[in-house]
């Protein structure tokens, strides 16, 4: 099926401006969701998913060089909205991260690692990672 809308934007990825970038990304996702007519709950999950992975890219992916960029590409067709984040930070495949499975444990005994990735991957209908050359690409797809 042919895309009827595709666009791409670049956001700065530096810890110094973490708050600004995350806030702009959430705003961007909100606008995409509104254009695509996504349900509120879907929009919230998509925003959370992208915020979590973008945070990882900015805080860990570019940790060694301090700053970089995240290219965000959106495509909307009749059935799906896909937002992709592309970065050139250290290779990181979220799908290979061990997922937390201690959901019934008391809070004080909980491991805190992996929560964000868990929410990101489970918050969208399809999550895909690929490493292309020097780039990490994280693709988030939701059904319209």
């Amino acid at each position: 099926m042919a895309d009827y809308e595709t666009n791409s934007l670049v956001f700065p990825a530096s810890k110094e401006y973490l708050g600004e970038t995350l806030s702009q990304l959430r705003q961007y996702v909100t606008e995409v969701a509104e254009r695509a007519g996504l349900e509120k709950a879907t929009m919230h999950r998509l925003r959370l998913a992208i915020d979590e992975i973008a945070t990882n890219i900015i805080v860990y992916g570019y940790a060694d060089r301090g700053e970089g960029e995240i290219r965000v590409t959106t495509s909307i067709d009749d059935e799906f909205v896909t937002i992709s984040l592309e970065d050139t930070g250290i290779p990181f495949d979220p799908t290979q991260r061990e997922m937390p499975d201690n959901f019934d444990d008391p809070l004080e005994e909980r491991e805190i690692g992996g929560l964000g990735i868990y929410l990101a991957i489970n918050g969208v209908d399809d999550f895909r990672y690929e490493r292309v050359g020097e780039c990490n690409r994280n693709h988030f797809t939701v059904r319209r």
């Binding site: 959430r26 925003r47 959370l48 915020d51 979590e52 945070t55 008391p106 809070l107 004080e108 909980r110 805190i112 929560l115 964000g116 868990y118 929410l119």
Partner: peptide, 24 residues
């Protein structure tokens, strides 16, 4: 209006810092 996993981690921190017997 919004909370990411960073907020959840603070909840874990709160429980650990306050002690298991303190209700949140």
């Amino acid at each position: 209006e919004y909370m990411s996993s960073a907020g959840l981690r603070v909840l874990v921190f709160a429980k650990q810092k306050m002690g298991a017997g303190i209700d949140i």
